[in-house]
Design a protein around this nucleic acid. Structure first.
Lengths: 239, 239
DNA sequence: ACCTGAACACCGTTCAAGT
DNA sequence: ACCTGAACACCGTTCAAGT
């Protein structure tokens, strides 16, 4: 280290907004939504509540900062449409968000609750931009881009959210296969007069793959966008 | 009142699960998510917490019951595919849920958080059944119905949820038009290098209609379902 | 069977006081 | 400028006691 320069280096364990957000994410990942309390947070950081409040305004802002950090990381994987078709770009962004929500299920509620609640934040623009850019590259005409983009985003957040909630159902004594099996069996026992459709698809849902199903939905919407907005000559259905 | 018969009539203001759920909905509608507390609930019902706990197991069950009641009511509007095309049936169900979430914004979080968390409850099957029946009527082949249906449901819940969150942003001093205007202006000031797409659609979003936009998304997915699964000869694009 | 209400453990947030 | 930690108002839930 260069001598003389009055570095404002603090003790290695000094508090910072970053360190606080990092600890918050760990608590949320470890114990879910309810795991983040100022008691648990201050214990982990070996400090008092006042110290935390010096760096963040309140719990809501802390949750927002944690969400922001993870969404930014999830969207950073693809270096802005580097290669591949727009379809692949959209699938990549969608999967990035899907996996992020899968790894941090509390993100689902956060995105559903506060995403639009603060559209002036950076999360909403970031997501819209990632998808919208690819929609434009797809050749969707100007007046239809907003609808196409927000349809995709709503689906992605909705599906990923439902999925995370499903994952959260895991009781320790029950793995995923058992869980799906239980749901499937419960559905098969519904009144056939009231729930004919559910009974028909009960088996189908027993051994479905979440990621595959999620991507199939994305592709269905892509098909709709292409069919609705692109001249038949310009379509390449193999992409 | 017939004399002699030992009716088990209680005082007119007797507590019941129904009355409790009703009061809970009123509190949630009036003051949002945070408005439902056992303190406020027992005050409104002129009773103590113990009385409420006699009828419901805990706050989560109470929220679930409130959600269940409203979703059932929202889906009851259409008497099971009475008339019209399957497309219209799907639009009707979608709008029913959209309007329910719009009228009770707290439903969005509830549906996102606990819908899949308790797929054994009645809410998930109810929604899937309503949409799935129409998807079948549309002529979608057996193996594709689950994907088509859950894509629609994920979109509907995602879009309606985002929308409710937007509605929740309303500050009393700012009506909807002002709010959209503020968002639009904020978006127009983003860095054009980082957010080219957002800037392009900023104007488009200033005067969009939520319901119209929502239905356009439903139609986009319907177009995709038809294009992907129905033989061209069987399609009637005017529906 | 149904209701009362005091009590418990916990929560987010504040703030005078320290360094 | 940054941190401490006691204190405050509030929360969901329990439970012995009543009717």
């Amino acid at each position: 280290m260069g001598r003389g320069t009055p570095r404002s280096e603090r003790r290695a364990d000094a508090l910072s907004r970053e360190r606080i957000v990092e600890a918050a994410v760990e608590l949320l990942d470890g114990a879910g939504e309810g795991g983040l309390t100022f008691r648990a947070l201050t214990e982990r950081l070996a400090t008092g509540p006042g110290a935390v409040y010096w760096h963040v305004a309140n719990k809501g802002e802390l949750l927002g900062a944690a969400t922001d950090a993870l969404v930014a990381a999830a969207l950073a994987v693809e270096p802005a449409g580097s290669s591949g078709s727009p379809q692949d770009g959209i699938r990549a962004v969608a999967l990035g968000l899907f996996d992020a929500i899968d790894a941090h299920p509390w993100l689902a509620t956060q995105l559903a609750t506060h995403l639009s609640r603060s559209p002036l934040g950076s999360v909403t623009p970031r997501i819209l931009e990632s998808i919208g850019r690819q929609v434009r590259a797809l050749g969707v005409p100007e007046g239809s881009r907003f609808t196409a983009t927000s349809t995709l985003v709503h689906y992605i957040l909705g599906a990923a959210g439902q999925n995370a909630a499903n994952a959260g159902t895991h009781r320790p004594d029950m793995d995923r296969a058992e869980f799906l099996d239980a749901v499937s069996r419960a559905w098969e026992q519904l009144d056939p007069d009231d729930y004919p459709f559910i009974r028909d698809v009960a088996r189908e849902m027993r051994d479905h793959d979440d990621r595959v199903e999620f991507l199939a939905g994305v592709d269905l919407i892509l098909t709709g966008i292409i069919a609705a907005h692109l001249p038949p000559s310009g379509r390449d259905l193999r992409n």
